[in-house]
Amino acid sequence: MSIEFSEAHIETSKDADIAINYPKAEGNKDVSERINTTIENYIVSQINFSEDSLTNITIKNAVERFNTEYTTFKSDFPDSPQKWEAFIDGEVTYRSPEVICMAINSYLDTGGAHGNTNVRFFNFNPQTGELYSKNELINNVSDISKIIERKLQEKAKSKSDEPIEDFFFGKDFQLPETIGYSDEGLIILYNPYEIASYSQGIIEFIIPYSEISSYLNIY
């Protein structure tokens, strides 16, 4: 039985402003449960302010905890105009017989100079619902890293508004934390602070499969 997706939606503005949309897997019970558990645990972790790692609570419970944290904050600082926000949006960016790629975009603002944005890709095996490791996706990390680094330098030079002079804060090149798939090619995305200052925002580009297919085990 193939895996299909519906959209799950949670929204409230009673206390904090919260809106969560994400694809919910349906079909093969074991496979869909693995996919949903991975995604839901990640969303819970994004809005979890406790020091404990929460893996056995629902997104609804996590939203309630987030609201409780906010009301406590308002009680402690009644003059603060800050209203907390949590916006999470997910989408399936690519599907093939070998991989289902999902992107989760999170934006949280709980005070400070600005909110925090983070995008993460999840690459699932459609047959098992398990996540692929980077080494399972890529057969030659060294060579594909050279291509990505070159494309990254080209991207930096093309930013006419604020060219990037120093990547990785003086450290050696690193692959993104996660890599995504789209119909157009491999998605290379670095989040704010991952390789450059916050002002640079998200740095993203796509490398066509025709240029890198020989380095990929799966696409």
Rank of each mutant, 00 (worst) to 15 (best):
E40I: 06
K24M: 13
N217E: 08
A113N: 12
S197K: 12
L175H: 03
I218N: 02
I3R: 03
E98I: 02
H114Q: 09
E91I: 11
S13E: 15
I100N: 01
G201T: 02
R150L: 07
Y107T: 04
F168T: 08
S53N: 06
H9I: 02
P176Y: 00
P208D: 13
I59M: 10
D52Q: 15
G129F: 02
S53T: 14
Y219A: 14
D109C: 04
W84N: 08
T110D: 07
N105A: 09
K14I: 15
A113P: 06
P78A: 00
P192N: 04
G112D: 09
A196L: 00
T71C: 04
A196M: 09
T110L: 11
Y42Q: 02
M1C: 05
S199A: 07
Y198Q: 05
L189E: 05
S50T: 11
S133K: 13
L186Y: 01
V119S: 05
P163I: 06
N123S: 09
L108Y: 14
N139F: 02
I212T: 03
N67R: 13
E162Y: 11
I203E: 03
G170S: 01
N61R: 08
I179K: 04
I202K: 12
E165T: 14
E64P: 07
K60A: 12
N61T: 12
L131N: 02
A25G: 11
T55M: 09
E130I: 00
I212D: 10
S80D: 15
A156T: 01
R95N: 06
S75P: 09
S50Q: 08
F49A: 08
I39G: 06
F77A: 08
Y132F: 05
I187C: 13
I148T: 02
P126Q: 00
L186R: 00
F5N: 09
D172W: 01
T72D: 14
P126E: 07
S2Q: 10
I148P: 07
E136D: 05
I164V: 12
E154N: 12
S214Q: 13
I187Y: 10
S142F: 07
I212M: 06
G201C: 09
N21C: 01
R150W: 01
Y181N: 03
E91F: 07
E165L: 01
S13N: 15
K83W: 09
N67V: 05
E51Y: 03
S32Q: 00
Y107L: 11
Y219N: 13
N116Y: 05
K83I: 14
I39A: 11
D76I: 10
A25C: 13
K83H: 14
S32C: 11
A156G: 06
V141A: 08
L175W: 04
N123A: 04
G111A: 06
T72G: 08
I187M: 15
Y190D: 04
P163G: 10
G112Y: 07
I10T: 07
F173W: 01
D52V: 04
A196S: 14
E154P: 01
T68Q: 15
T72S: 15
S214R: 14
F173A: 04
P81Q: 09
R65H: 11
G27V: 11
K29T: 11
V44E: 08
K24N: 09
F122W: 13
N56M: 06
F168V: 10
C101V: 01
I57V: 10
F173C: 03
S45F: 11
E154F: 15
F168L: 12
I39T: 12
S199T: 04
A86C: 13
Q82T: 15
I35S: 10
I35L: 06
